[in-house]
């Protein structure tokens, strides 16, 4: 897999690059800001761009803007955004525009090479990835009352994994359930949440996240 890394911290950029190289990922470029990232992507056509959300000049969401630009201009290039923000706002912005081949991970995940590589592979495969911590926060936030109360614990587990962007197959693997059981759970969840089941996996993620956010 060919990856371009964008992060304005040189130390971090290089560390990440070496870590990925160590697990056999081909890092074809490391850059420090958004314009350089767009150039590198145009030049190298990597499979995935790994982008820190904070980049010069304002260090707020330049990375996010660059990620959307990449998805707009190079549909073949997947983007994994590394964020410092626990809340779902930016993740939703990203998913709203580009429901597929995008990921939103908290920055500290990068040291967990297994998680990182998994996320890279998933976005590379066109799936979407949302950080489990973010999903968990949304799922467990206090609510007055609502549709979520109708779900069983198992259904909530399945819902969380759906929100993280996992496919049915992945969910059945992770929960060691049969695919049929997973499908049954999902059908129940959709019925209880009054959601129209969608064949589009990405639309499904978005819909679930919307439910969790409100």
């Amino acid at each position: 897999m060919r990856v371009v890394i964008a992060d304005d911290e040189v130390l971090l950029r290089e560390g990440l690059s070496r870590l990925l190289a160590e697990v056999g990922i081909d890092v074809v470029g490391t850059v420090g800001d958004a314009p350089a990232l767009l150039r590198a992507v145009a030049l190298e056509k990597p499979d995935v761009a790994l982008v820190d959300i904070k980049m010069p000049p304002t260090h707020t969401d330049e990375g996010l803007t660059a990620a959307m630009a990449i998805r707009d201009q190079h549909p073949a290039v997947a983007v994994l955004v590394l964020s410092h923000y626990l809340d779902s706002r930016y993740a939703m912005q990203l998913l709203d525009r580009h429901p597929g081949a995008v990921g939103y991970l908290l920055k500290e995940r990068i040291s967990d090479v297994v998680v990182l590589v998994d996320a890279l592979r998933r976005v590379g495969d066109g799936e979407c990835v949302i950080d489990p911590t973010i999903v968990s926060r949304l799922l467990h936030r206090p609510r007055t009352s609502g549709k979520l109360d109708r779900l069983t614990d198992r259904e909530r587990e399945v819902l969380a994994l759906m929100a993280e962007g996992h496919s049915n197959q992945a969910i059945s693997d992770l929960l060691t359930l049969s695919p049929r059981t997973v499908e049954r759970h999902i059908a129940h969840i959709f019925a209880k949440l009054d959601l129209a089941d969608s064949d589009d996996h990405h639309r499904r993620v978005l819909a679930v996240l919307e439910i969790l956010r409100t």
Binding site: L12, G15, E22, I110, S111, D112, V113
Partner: peptide, 23 residues
């Protein structure tokens, strides 16, 4: 900002280094 851009980034780098060393 200092915490964010300084300490936090360095901690991330440190965990990265740990990861690399472990591998």
């Amino acid at each position: 900002r200092d915490l964010h851009d300084g300490a936090q980034q360095q901690l991330v780098s440190l965990s990265l280094a740990c990861s690399l060393a472990a591998i």
